[in-house]
Computed example of a mutant assay.
Amino acid sequence: MKFTVTSRGDDVSNTLQQRIKSYLLEFGLTHDEEAPEMVVTVGGDGTLLQAFHDYSDRLEDTAFVGIHTGHLGFYADWVPDEVEKLVIHIAKTPYQIVEYPLLEVVIRHEGNVNSERHLALNECTIKSFEGSLVSNVEIKGDVFEIFRGDGLCISTPSGSTAYNKALGGAILHPSLASIQISEMASINNRVYRTVGSPLVLPQHHTCLLKPLNDVDIQVTIDHYTLDHKRIKSLQCRVAEEKIRFARFRPFPFWKRVKESFIRE
Rank of each mutant, 00 (worst) to 15 (best):
F129Q: 07
F129K: 09
G131R: 14
V134C: 03
S135F: 05
V137F: 03
K140W: 02
V143T: 05
V143K: 01
F147W: 08
R148A: 08
G149N: 03
G149L: 06
D150F: 14
D150E: 14
D150Q: 03
G151Q: 06
G151E: 08
C153R: 08
C153P: 05
P157C: 06
S158I: 15
S160V: 13
T161H: 05
T161M: 10
A166T: 15
L176E: 02
A177I: 03
S178N: 04
S178R: 00
S178I: 02
I181P: 01
E183F: 10
M184C: 05
S186W: 09
I187E: 01
T194H: 09
V195W: 07
S197L: 15
P198G: 09
V200L: 08
V200G: 02
L201Q: 14
Q203P: 07
H204G: 12
H204D: 15
H205M: 12
T206N: 10
C207E: 07
C207M: 15
L209C: 06
N213H: 01
D214F: 13
Q218K: 09
Q218W: 00
V219F: 03
I221A: 12
Y224P: 05
K229G: 12
R230W: 03
I231S: 00
I231T: 00
K232V: 04
L234T: 04
